[in-house]
Write a protein that binds this DNA or RNA. Structure first.
Length: 237
DNA sequence: AACATTCACAACCGCGCAGTG
DNA sequence: CCACTGCGCGGTTGTGAATGT
């Protein structure tokens, strides 16, 4: 199929985004939206390819993106959802409000996978969490924030850290916040915070006939498994 | 204190799918 | 119906930071 060369390589910038680029992108999207990623960089005056802009926006600059460490509940949910859905990070992300597929993928590959592989309760990471960062939401436009690639420390707005974070990696002693789960599980894939960008469930729409269940069915099973998982993890408590 | 190793994360790359002319 | 374009997804890599020796 005709695939346009992702970025016409000439003259386009790569690598970490600067604060100015972030600001430009955010400002442009706030003003004009992102109906056409390919044309966006030109319109915004960015020397980036559309793909890069899209990635930056989705994974980092979106107003509803949560930054910071994953809570125990989130990690647990990822593990369970991964067990059901496999590497369908976007689907998993759709059920974790404020989290992106890229972020979830990273977390999975960095510690959740290892934790599972070790699969022993004492399989604690050798090191402590390096960045004890509060879970926050990145405001849409944050000119004075260190938005560049190293900006994992959006530690300013601790007001949004209401999740019950009493989780430690090697013990399953975390408390499930019922309201959190009821909210999370109530989220329809299509109505998740992804600004309508979420495609219909590929398990259904993508012609993956091996899984011919409907969205509703999937949600049912997700709910069921999550609750079961909660119950499994809780008794230890 | 310096060096080596490991880890975490942002970003890139390529592929497949869906929409459109 | 076919070809083309753009978008989204998943896998992988590069880099800086933290930790260990």
């Amino acid at each position: 199929m005709g695939r346009s060369p992702c970025c016409e390589k000439l003259g386009l910038k790569r690598g970490p985004w600067t604060a100015e680029e972030d600001m430009t992108l955010v400002a442009h999207i706030e003003r004009h939206g992102h109906s056409n990623w390919r044309a966006l960089p030109k319109q915004a005056g960015l020397l980036r390819c559309g793909k890069s802009c899209r990635l930056r926006w989705i994974n980092y600059l979106r107003p509803d993106v949560k930054r910071g460490n994953f809570t125990g509940e989130e990690e647990d949910a990822i593990i369970q959802l991964h067990g059901m859905l496999g590497n369908r990070w976007s689907l998993i992300a759709a059920r974790l409000p404020g989290r992106t597929d890229n972020e979830i993928k990273n977390v999975w590959h960095t510690h959740l996978k290892k934790r599972l592989e070790a699969s022993s309760p004492s399989a604690a990471p050798k090191r402590k969490a390096r960045k004890p960062v509060a879970v926050t939401t990145v405001p849409a436009a944050l000119p004075e924030q260190p938005i560049s690639s190293c900006a994992t420390d959006y530690s300013m707005a601790s007001s949004t850290t209401e999740t019950t974070e009493s989780f430690s990696p090697d013990s399953h002693e975390f408390q499930i916040d019922d309201s959190f789960w009821s909210e999370t599980l109530a989220i329809e894939v299509d109505s998740s915070g992804r600004s309508g960008m979420v495609a219909p469930d590929p398990l259904v729409a993508g012609g993956a006939n091996s899984m011919s269940s409907s969205n509703a069915d999937m949600d049912f099973w997700v709910t069921l498994f999550m609750q079961a998982g909660d119950m499994e993890n809780s008794p230890q408590i």
